[in-house]
């Protein structure tokens, strides 16, 4: 016989503490219903978790790849807005494919669903899988930005031009409609193609492409293009108009320079120098004027005065020389 009376404060019946000690270790599926800011510092989610046939809200944090102060990752999941008409008990359309909230997997901290962690998502029944039907090894879309990797190895990120997403199906009870994209915005992408080439385009008339196979880099904007060819060592600019604006200096160095204008050509500068290491053309012309000015012409009447003694020399020729000195540059 046990003479010592058991104190119920110490010898508690474990059956009565079954709920107290219970741990919910299973992972639950749920739909994101609300986003809210907790303590002004953290985005949290109310996820409607499925539990034994019940829908129970759980306050969830989001699992990310890093949890550091410097190393972090944030992204916002998409909630759905409760709709009394479609959420009512017994509503025939009370299915996930009528709600656009993200469908996620939730695990609980410490075995209790006071606080859950969103581990990731699962396929939303309102969206058909893409992979089996196409040459796609990976595809994702987040707020209208699509990332796609093909089985052949190309990688493309496309801006589909998402319009601010409706929180619910447009028509209650009708499965979620395809998202409406803005065609003016959408279509831009950058891509690493399966041959190693890289391109970025607005999906319309503008692009930059590095062609690894053709060893050519092409920048295209409508009728304008710049083509850089590795093998030929050439750079070609094709454009109805080419404008080069340089506020300080423009240097063009080549062995041979051929410039051709079918209609006109202009060269305008405050100072100009034309020549080579030994001779500058304008200086040559100035020297020529000076030479001509001192030149004594011998006429049949005998030697004449030098030309620069002529009264008009100083008025016209010296003035011309002064202008040539002003425009003269140096090489």
């Amino acid at each position: 016989m046990d003479y010592i009376v058991k104190d119920s404060a110490i010898h508690s019946d474990p059956r009565h503490f079954a709920a107290y000690d219970a741990k919910e270790t299973s992972i639950k599926m749920g739909m994101v219903r609300e986003i809210y800011t907790a303590n002004s510092s953290e985005i949290k989610y109310v996820v409607e978790v499925q539990h034994r046939g019940n829908t129970i809200p759980v306050a969830c944090s989001l699992m990310t790849r890093w949890g550091g102060v410097r190393n972090f990752e944030e992204y916002g999941l998409r909630p759905y807005k409760g709709n009394p008409a479609t959420d009512m008990l017994g509503a025939t359309d009370q299915t996930y494919d009528t709600r656009v909230g993200d469908l996620v997997l939730v695990a609980c901290l410490n075995g209790q669903y006071r606080e859950g962690v969103i581990l990731g998502g699962v396929r939303h029944p309102g969206r058909k899988s893409t992979i089996p039907a196409a040459d796609i090894a990976y595809i994702s879309e987040f707020n209208g930005i699509e990332t796609k990797i093909t089985t052949s190895g190309s990688y493309r990120i496309t801006n589909k031009g998402a319009i601010s997403a409706p929180l619910d199906a447009a028509i209650p009870g009708v499965p979620i409609l395809p998202e409406i994209n803005n065609p003016v915005v959408g279509g831009s992408y950058y891509e690493l193609s399966d041959d190693g080439s890289w391109s970025v385009t607005d999906g319309m008339q503008q692009s930059i492409k590095i062609d690894k196979t053709g060893q050519t880099t092409t920048i295209t904007a409508g009728k304008c293009s710049v083509t850089l060819k590795v093998l030929e060592g050439s750079a070609t600019v094709d454009s109805p108009t080419v404008v080069i604006n340089s506020t300080i200096q423009t240097d063009i160095k080549t062995m041979m320079l051929n410039m051709e204008a079918t209609l006109s050509a202009k060269l305008k500068a405050k100072q100009i120098a034309i020549g080579n290491e030994t001779f500058e053309l304008i200086q040559g012309l100035i020297d020529l004027i000076d030479g001509l000015g001192t030149l004594v012409v011998t006429s049949p009447a005998g030697p004449c005065n030098p030309l620069n003694t002529a009264p008009t020399w100083a008025v016209s020729i010296e003035l011309l020389k002064a202008k040539m000195l002003a425009i003269k540059g140096s090489l």
Binding site: E48, T55, I56, P57, G82, D87, M88, L89
Partner: peptide, 8 residues
Amino acid sequence: KAPGSALA
């Protein structure tokens, strides 16, 4: 016609 889960 309240949202489906009152407790929720």
